[in-house]
Nucleic acid binder design. Sequence first.
DNA 1: AGCCGGACCTGACCAATGTCACGGCTGTCG
DNA 2: CGACAGCCGTGACATTGGTCAGGTCCGGCT
Lengths: 201, 201
Amino acid sequence: MTIRVVLAEDQGMVLGAFAALLRLEPDLDVVATATDGPKALAAVLEHDPDVLVTDVEMPGMSGLDVAAALRRDGNRARVVIVTTFGRSGYLRRALDSGVAGYVLKDAPIDQLVGVVRRVHAGERVVDPQLAMAAWDAADPMTDRERDVLRLAADGLPNGEIAARLHLAEGTVRNYLSTAITKLGVRNRIEAARMARDRGWL
Amino acid sequence: MTIRVVLAEDQGMVLGAFAALLRLEPDLDVVATATDGPKALAAVLEHDPDVLVTDVEMPGMSGLDVAAALRRDGNRARVVIVTTFGRSGYLRRALDSGVAGYVLKDAPIDQLVGVVRRVHAGERVVDPQLAMAAWDAADPMTDRERDVLRLAADGLPNGEIAARLHLAEGTVRNYLSTAITKLGVRNRIEAARMARDRGWL
DNA sequence: AGCCGGACCTGACCAATGTCACGGCTGTCG
DNA sequence: CGACAGCCGTGACATTGGTCAGGTCCGGCT
């Protein structure tokens, strides 16, 4: 009774290393790999695996988007997210998307194999250290503030942000100002950095 | 005659995967691993390996810094850099630091093992796709411009940048202005993004 | 020597950003 | 209903950021 796994990760070398490692386990079978979001989704639909192991940040479609899409389709595959740093905002969205496991790339490698097995057995597994952090920092920003900050983070001037969102320039300034105040920072750059670090963008 | 390797990479899970993979090769021996720059340096000094395989971005000290330090000490270890995306500026600095190999994490996993062997045999190996890109984009910024842009990228206001560098505020503005002009962008945010993407910070 | 180019540094000026006080709208609770 | 709280949207005003036109100093070249 082997566990059939699909593996998605955009960095080819890391993907290869994870795949080689999972194949070493006699009860695991890596049936397909993918290097971006859409390919990951297609691979799951084609191979009908027990578990999808995926990175969050991938070209085209994030691992979270893939998980949400599978959820909508009623696909039976259980999803394990593997990500770089503890962006607590991601975890929140991941849980909303029905993700079954959430592991940090900082963790020791054995943990990955363990989580795949436990998730397949029906458990929901989240790195405990991260689970703590997720709840003490809820996103304080409104949708509009997030929209504006996202564009500002790319270096767009207020005028252009206003044009894209069909707002007055003063309004854009206002949203940025409230975002800056809520996050307790000094300007849009620090605000963008903090929001990004916490997975709020 | 096994090749003795030290492996440095800050993400524990990736480190573990690479280590497991290299250990599968009969002619390679992973004698130590490290999760930050200073530990990598210490591990090389203690174990005197043939090859150091290291990430660029690590806490404390970058892989490039470690390579430069080894070079200065006349250490015999040959250095292979493994990094995420093709930041051409990094490659330039890497070659200056006497690095022997440079591989992208996007590449297939087999390449890593091959490069380690070829580097140990005395070759200098650089991902050819990347080697091209490195020379068509030289860093146009002066040292001072880089200093200022680095701090601006962290969100510091001009006044504070001026204080840290013992400059007048007008001077800071001027450096940022020239950097913005040279890079052909609209503001400090875009300038920081571009410089980062190209490995110029 | 005199000239030139480039990095470094500066203040004055205008444009972009951040703050504030204010309305309109919607939903909730007594 | 009326009071309240929260999000959305706006213009006027102060602060910060970007541009310009210089100035000094140093090394290379004629």
